[in-house]
């Protein structure tokens, strides 16, 4: 069984969204996703200041045998990226919800958060 924290929101593309104060969100990929991908060897993230529309590709993630796109679940501006992943991309495998986070965004509309999947729906989506 994958770890699906109840206090986060999710997408069908296997990203999680953690809400912080003031319309700031932290985005990464789920425990299920990192398990499917296997050992992650490289994470390509956008520059701080990049403006993203919903479902824009914001980066790519390379595991030992596959490269996958990362989709922005919300519209907003990238205000911070996790530089630690450049040196140690395996943090995504080891701790996807904390040390393995990817980008921090200032989102345009907090209302969009309600359109994301709650943990129970995501669990259903991945068959757990």
């Amino acid at each position: 069984m994958s770890n699906i924290p109840a206090d986060l929101r999710y997408t069908e593309e296997h990203e999680y969204i953690r809400s912080e104060a003031g319309g700031v969100v932290i985005i990464g990929i789920t425990d299920y996703a990192q398990g499917e991908l296997g050992d992650i060897v490289y994470v390509d993230l956008p520059d701080v200041g990049t403006s993203l529309a919903r479902m824009d590709v914001f980066g790519t993630i390379e595991a030992v045998k596959a490269v996958s796109e990362l989709f922005s679940p919300l519209a907003g501006e990238v205000i911070e990226i996790n530089d630690a992943l450049d040196k140690d991309p395996s943090l995504v495998n080891k701790d996807p919800y904390d040390d393995g986070w990817m980008i921090k965004m200032q989102i345009r509309s907090e209302g969009e958060l309600n359109e994301l999947l709650p943990a129970s729906d995501y669990a259903q989506h991945i068959g757990e």
Partner: peptide, 19 residues
């Protein structure tokens, strides 16, 4: 890696995927 095509443990096919 797991799921590779091998003969006697030696790799015969090298593959990569992108989505």
């Amino acid at each position: 890696a797991g799921g590779e095509v091998t003969v006697d443990g030696r790799k015969l096919v090298g593959s990569a995927q992108t989505r």
